[in-house]
Amino acid sequence: MSNDIFDALLREKISVFKSAFSTLATEVFFNPEAGRLRHSGEYGMYRENIVKDFLRFLIPGSLDLSTGFLITSMNDVSTQCDVVVFDPRMTPLFQEGDRHRFYPVETVFCVAEVKSTLSRAEFGKSLNKLARTKALSERISHPRVLYKQSHTGFDPLHDPHDLIPTILICQKLDFKLEGLALFIDELYEPDVEQRHKHNMVLSIEDGLLAYIDQAGRDSAYPEVAGQRQLVRFQWPDTNPFSHFKSFAASMLILTVNKTLLYPELSFYMGTVEGGKKQDQVRLMEP
Rank of each mutant, 00 (worst) to 15 (best):
M1V: 11
I5C: 06
L10T: 08
S15W: 01
A20D: 15
T23F: 08
T26I: 15
E27V: 05
V28H: 12
V28S: 10
P32T: 14
R38Y: 11
S40N: 02
Y43K: 02
M45W: 11
Y46C: 04
I50W: 02
I50R: 03
V51T: 00
K52R: 09
K52Y: 01
L55Q: 03
F57D: 09
F57A: 11
L58E: 06
L58R: 01
I59L: 00
P60F: 04
G61N: 13
D64T: 02
L65E: 01
S66R: 02
T67H: 05
G68Y: 07
F69W: 07
F69C: 04
N75F: 15
D76T: 07
V77Q: 14
V77A: 15
S78E: 00
T79N: 14
Q80L: 04
D82F: 01
D87G: 05
D87E: 04
R89L: 09
T91E: 00
L93N: 03
E96P: 03
D98M: 12
H100Q: 14
P104C: 10
E106R: 00
V108K: 04
F109Y: 09
C110F: 06
V111G: 09
V111F: 07
A112M: 02
V114L: 00
S116P: 07
S119C: 04
A121G: 09
F123N: 05
K125F: 07
S126Y: 04
N128T: 09
K129L: 10
A131W: 03
R132S: 10
R132G: 07
K134L: 03
A135T: 10
A135K: 09
L136E: 00
R144K: 13
R144P: 08
Y147D: 11
Q149K: 13
S150M: 06
D162R: 08
D162Q: 11
L163P: 10
I164C: 03
P165R: 04
I167R: 00
Q171I: 05
Q171C: 09
K172L: 06
D174F: 01
E178I: 13
G179I: 12
G179V: 12
G179Q: 12
L180F: 12
A181L: 02
D185C: 06
E189P: 10
E189K: 10
P190N: 07
V192D: 06
E193I: 11
R195I: 10
H196E: 15
H196P: 10
K197Q: 15
N199D: 12
L202T: 02
I204C: 05
I204L: 04
E205P: 13
L209V: 13
A210D: 12
Q214A: 15
A215R: 14
R217W: 11
R217H: 15
S219T: 09
A220F: 10
Y221N: 08
P222I: 11
P222C: 11
P222K: 12
V224M: 05
V224R: 00
Q229N: 15
Q229Y: 11
V231Q: 08
F233K: 02
W235G: 08
P240D: 06
F241Q: 04
H243Q: 08
F244L: 02
F247M: 04
A248R: 00
A249R: 09
L252M: 08
I253D: 14
L254M: 11
L254H: 07
N257W: 13
L261V: 03
P263C: 01
S266H: 14
S266W: 14
F267C: 09
G274T: 01
G275A: 07
Q280N: 14
L283C: 06
L283A: 05
M284Q: 12
E285Y: 08
